[in-house]
Amino acid sequence: MIPVKFDYLAPTSVEEALAALGEHGDDAKILAGGQSLLPVLRMRLNAPEVVIDLGGISSLRGIRDDGDAIVIGAMTTHHDVRDDHLVKQHALLLSKAAAEVADSQIRHRGTFGGALAHADPAGDLGAPALALGAQFVVAGPGGTRTVEASDFFVDLFETAIGDDEILTEVRIPKHTGWGAHYEKFVRVAHQWPIVAVAATVRGSIDEARVGLTNMGSTPLRATATEQALAGVSATEDGVREAAQLAADGTHPPSDLNGAADYRQHLARVLTGRAVLRAAGV
């Protein structure tokens, strides 16, 4: 497993990184934690001439309180997202989902921004970010812009980040006191989810947000379920009925781990379980 030869750049600021990206354009690729990019390079599925490592840009790392939101730097590791007290307090769902990513070695290297930029529909962080209404801050040659979660995920492995742009941070509106649960369905422990459901609820139940992982080419919101859950009491029966709507309008993939209809079934069952757990039932 030897990648094609490439040059390695290690900028120390976002400006420097953007300049390098501008110079090398299509020939360059950004390296965050490398947990998705390196396998791609080693399997020779991609062969950039230049790899721009963001690892030396300290401003991209860390989590801060920003009033009605918390802000997570793109280079913050899954491990740090999982353990951070601000995240636990204001976006518990992210902490729960980050805990379910791969194994602890990968969680110490893989980054929040890298995972979202990679946009694997089976990635564990897209659905929670979507459910929480994350805002993606993207820096480019003309300055920074903010992309709403609903516009960020474009397709399989495709986001709104432009070729000459870098994801710098993600703003998560505070969901202080909301209950949360990430229900991940796998066959072996270290697997990407066959289907997963990210649920976070206020009260029991005043308001609910439900995100679906691997139920289409991008993370999805189960909006019909969310609506049906508002004002429902957190009981088996009430929640299950709303959960029946979770797979409506989805077009999940069929692969070795499950055909589309099975995934839809799972989405319904797991939504019920995730919401109940989020509501503390």
Partner: peptide, 8 residues
């Protein structure tokens, strides 16, 4: 590990 559409 699909070739990304990002940057390239």
């Amino acid at each position: 590990f699909q070739e990304g559409a990002l940057n390239q």
